[in-house]
């Protein structure tokens, strides 16, 4: 299996703070890879480093066999790699209609037949053209996240970076968005790199995952390892227990 995204010994430093400390992962083409951890674990930082939004201090990042420069990314990169953000309320420009939002990537990459593509992208994420000329504040959280997914898909990337795409949504809406993401991945053979704090979501969506804590990878394991309890790190075990809910210790 060829590798879509690989990170080798990647370190990210913000001012004096080491957000990532020589982290290595390898994501195969067509794979769905999960990064789990709590806040400050560096899971989102790794995603942002790949996208070129975080300063890489040392280490190598490769996407589809091409080595990335620490800061700069060319346009071709962004046709291959797109990202969906956590907060659907913050990731859509408040003064632009959905139509305008979806036109922007097409204009940047000089893609023609914008009309057809926008209609088709909205259709693919299950919104339909009735939403096309609305502003983002006229949409619910779930609908906004669908728009964000449509925006990422419209340039036909092969890799999708997902930064907690459902953590700001209600549980029932989360299920709808997760189903949509799975469907899209199946239809287009996309590679997913997904960040979440929710073990349930990650094991549902991903076949391979890395558990992270304070900027390091604690453990690499497959989803089936996790389900069957083949865990080596205590921290992962703690997370497992915590995700099951509150347990009253008899006094």
């Amino acid at each position: 299996m060829s590798i879509a995204v690989s990170a080798r010994d990647v370190t990210v430093i913000y001012e004096d703070f080491k957000a990532l400390d020589s982290v290595s992962i390898a994501v195969g083409k067509g794979q769905s890879y999960g990064l789990v951890g709590e806040s400050g674990s560096g899971k989102s930082t790794l995603l942002r480093a790949i996208a070129g939004l975080a300063p890489v201090f040392s280490g190598t990042l490769e996407v589809n066999g091409r080595t990335l420069e620490p800061r700069r990314r060319d346009k071709a990169f962004y046709r291959d790699v797109q990202m969906v953000f956590q907060d659907p309320y913050g990731s859509l420009h408040p003064r632009q209609t959905i139509d305008r939002l979806l036109q922007e990537p097409l204009a940047i990459h000089g893609i023609s037949d914008a009309e057809a593509r926008i209609a088709w992208a909205l259709d693919e994420v299950g919104l339909g053209t009735g939403f096309r000329f609305r502003y983002s504040h006229q949409l619910s959280g779930g609908q906004r996240q669908r728009v964000a997914i449509a925006r990422a898909l419209i340039v036909e990337p092969s890799i999708l970076l997902l930064d907690e795409p459902t953590s700001a949504l209600d549980a029932s809406v989360q299920a709808e968005v997760l189903n949509l993401l799975e469907q899209i991945r199946r239809d287009r053979g996309l590679t997913f790199l997904m960040v979440s704090h929710d073990l349930g979501v990650v094991t549902h969506m991903c076949d391979q995952l890395a558990v992270m804590r304070s900027g390091r990878v604690v453990e690499h394991l497959s989803a089936s390892d996790l389900v069957e309890g083949r865990i080596t790190a205590d921290y992962t075990r703690n997370l497992m227990v915590a995700s099951k809910g509150f347990v009253r210790t008899p006094a």
Binding site: A171, S172, Q174, A175, E176, L178, N179, E182, Q183, D198, L199, G200, V201, T203, H204, M205, L226, V227, M240, S243
Partner: peptide, 20 residues
Amino acid sequence: QGLLSCMPEIGSDRHPLPVL
């Protein structure tokens, strides 16, 4: 019932998730 079942759970392999 819908709220309970729509959450992905470790170890239960439901694709797609039941939606409300």
